[in-house]
Amino acid sequence: MDLNTVTAVISPAAPGDWRPGDAWLGGGTALFGEPRPEITRLLDLTAAGWPPLTFHGDHVEVAATCTIAQLAAGLGERFPIVLECCHAFLASFKIWNVATVGGNLCASLPAGPMISLSVAMAGTCVVAGPDGSSREVPAADFVTGEGRNVLSDGELLRAVRLPMATLSARTAYRRGSLFRHGRSAVLLIGRVEPDGELSLTVTAATKKPYVVKNVDGLDDWVDDVHGSPAWRRHLTHRYAAQIRAELMS
């Protein structure tokens, strides 16, 4: 969709360039998806030159501008759960080569699979402010509701840090949709903790991500054309039981 109120594109852009009416631009697949008359300038992050993946001893740092294709190529073979979440996009290679990890988190839609991955892997979001400051936010706390997150005006998501320990843990994945190639209506990831306990990450079915030991107490179901709350609740409980049987047997 054309953003016909945009009068300038700043490329490359840095946190200090932000002013009211600006929007950070990554791949743009979410940004250009609907009218945004409040936006007058785009600040291009893709020209910033951030390496897509940076490996450290205990974690891998995924740049916000890392594309889904780069994430799959860099981590998918070693960590199958990464590839599962990449394929949850059900998108063409064109989208895989444009859509970014950061854009998916910042769109903060319930069905965002990069949200699912970041939360399930106990990731940490690195947030940069327009004044040059930086703060870290647990991925589980980054999305606060449908289309809402913790970013303040001018802040941007710089990277997501995924611990190697959680990436290497035993996991199980379940995804449900009303249609074979439809948007995720329920997405659960189970992970075995170091103490042998099971953690369940619930996304797509709920308005924000939840990390729980069991799903009995959840009551925050999404209600839209992709599935009713009752159906999402039923499928969440079914998948949780399957994951528990798979990982705890």
Results as ranks from 00 to 15, higher is better:
A159W: 01
G103V: 09
P110F: 00
L83S: 15
R175Q: 14
S116G: 13
L157H: 02
V143C: 14
P138Q: 10
A169E: 05
S118F: 00
W96I: 08
E84Q: 15
S168H: 01
L162M: 06
R161T: 07
V127P: 08
L105D: 11
D131K: 03
L90M: 08
L151V: 10
V160T: 12
N149M: 06
M114I: 09
P130R: 13
A120K: 09
A172M: 04
W96P: 12
D141T: 05
A88G: 09
W96D: 13
G112K: 03
S108V: 04
C85G: 14
A91N: 13
V126R: 15
G176A: 15
C125Q: 14
G129K: 10
L117Y: 08
L105H: 06
T166E: 09
L151W: 00
A165D: 08
G103W: 01
G112C: 07
A139R: 05
C125L: 07
G176D: 13
E146I: 08
A140N: 08
S108Q: 08
G129D: 12
C85W: 00
R148D: 11
A88C: 10
F89Q: 14
V160R: 05
V160N: 12
R158V: 03
P113I: 07
G123I: 05
G176P: 03
G147Y: 00
S133Y: 01
A91H: 07
C125G: 13
G145P: 06
F89M: 09
M121K: 13
S92Q: 10
G123M: 02
S152Q: 09
L117I: 14
N97P: 03
K94D: 11
C85Y: 02
C106W: 01
P130I: 04
I95C: 05
